[in-house]
């Protein structure tokens, strides 16, 4: 008998919380991006846990699609970050208020 699903969900909740707090606390855009990856991984862990619990492969398929979307998101996001840093080096998330009303 393997570890109960509740423990996996608890771990996923902890990982998601750490990622969310990091996203709110940090100022470096790259580190904020890594925190988004942490939250995505916590959601992936939840998907796989429920796939095992409900005995349904669709959870693992959803994780596959999340991986693809995360890869695309990282590519586009890092492109945006590169163009931002090329224009104003050393910018943090607080300096990026060009769209602020």
């Amino acid at each position: 008998m393997s570890v109960s699903a509740t423990w996996y969900l608890t771990l996923a909740a902890v990982l998601f919380t750490i990622g969310a707090v990091g996203l709110l606390v940090r100022r470096n855009v790259l580190v904020m991006f890594m925190c988004v990856e942490l939250m995505l991984n916590a959601a992936n862990l939840t998907f796989v846990t429920f796939a095992r619990r409900l005995n349904d492969i669709a959870g693992q398929t959803a994780v596959f699609f999340v991986l693809v979307v995360a890869a695309a998101e990282v590519v586009v996001g890092l492109g945006i970050i590169v163009s931002i840093y090329r224009r104003r080096p050393g910018a943090t998330a607080d300096d990026l208020h060009g769209l602020k009303g």
């Binding site: 409900l54 005995n55 669709a58």
Partner: peptide
Amino acid sequence: LGILGLVEVLVLARGRWPSGARSVSGAI
């Protein structure tokens, strides 16, 4: 806010399971 959200999720996680149908698209 993070601690609050975590506590909320953990309280919800105690014994409350979504009643999803099993093995809709293929059994593991």
